[in-house]
Simulated scan of single mutants.
Amino acid sequence: MSTENDLIKLYSARILALAADIPRHGRLSNPDATVKRRAPLCGSTVTVDIAVDDGRISDYAAEVKACALGQAAASVVGAGIVGLNAAEVTAARDQLKAMLKHDGPVPDAPFDGLEVLQPAKDYKNRHASIMLTLEATVEALEEAGARSSCA
């Protein structure tokens, strides 16, 4: 059973600072793909808009309505996502999931800032909120790729 001190440590000053300053927060006016994801357990939601050029994210925005942990994850993702391709974003998603669920290593740069969320591995009910932004971005890249192959 977790104690109140454990929860205080979980919501560190660094996590709260990231949550308070999410880069690229908002919406794009003309995205190539938009995906909204919701964590059923806690109700956190993220809507990701991306623009893609030559298979890489050329513009990105996310509307985030989540707990501080989900917001902190969105902050790290927003700071490093532009310029990446689907394989790189999928690898980051998989690395974050492994870090949380299997005590895996911290995701590679530019997402190594997600290490701040390592204490959350003991709080399984928070994992879905933390994963939302990368999951939505992977799905948006798949959607944009499917559209471009049909064009």
Rank of each mutant, 00 (worst) to 15 (best):
A39M: 07
A73V: 07
R24M: 05
V48Y: 00
L16Y: 04
N125G: 06
I22V: 14
L7R: 12
N30H: 14
A146Y: 05
I8E: 07
T90C: 03
A109H: 10
L84T: 07
I50H: 04
L134R: 00
S75I: 05
L10V: 07
P110M: 10
V48G: 00
G26A: 11
L10G: 01
A120K: 00
D54Y: 11
A109Q: 13
D59W: 01
T47Q: 13
L7M: 13
R38P: 00
A66W: 00
Q95K: 07
A73L: 05
A140M: 06
R37L: 15
G113R: 06
S75Q: 04
A79H: 06
L7W: 12
L134S: 01
Q95S: 15
D108M: 08
S44E: 03
E88I: 01
G80H: 01
A151N: 05
H102D: 14
A17F: 05
L134A: 10
V35C: 03
P107C: 10
A61G: 09
A109V: 11
V35I: 15
A51Q: 14
R56V: 13
A51M: 12
V35Y: 00
E115Y: 04
E63T: 14
V35W: 01
A68S: 15
A73R: 01
E142I: 11
Q118W: 06
K36A: 14
I15R: 13
R37D: 04
A33D: 04
E142A: 14
D6P: 03
D53T: 15
A109F: 04
G78N: 10
S2E: 02
L69M: 12
A91W: 01
V48P: 00
A140N: 08
T45Y: 05
A39P: 01
R24H: 15
Q71Y: 02
K101Q: 12
A109N: 04
N125Q: 09
L16T: 07
T47L: 13
F111H: 02
A74P: 01
D6Y: 06
P119R: 10
H127P: 10
P23F: 08
A51R: 11
G113D: 08
A68F: 04
V64D: 00
K65W: 03
P23E: 12
D32G: 14
K124P: 02
S75L: 06
H102G: 06
M1L: 05
I57T: 05
L134K: 00
P31W: 09
V106H: 02
V64H: 00
C42Y: 11
E63A: 15
E135H: 13
F111G: 00
D59T: 04
S44W: 05
K97A: 12
N30M: 11
I22C: 08
D54Q: 14
E143S: 11
P110I: 09
A86R: 08
A17E: 14
A86T: 05
K65E: 10
K36P: 11
A144G: 12
A68M: 08
I15M: 13
A51L: 06
Q118H: 07
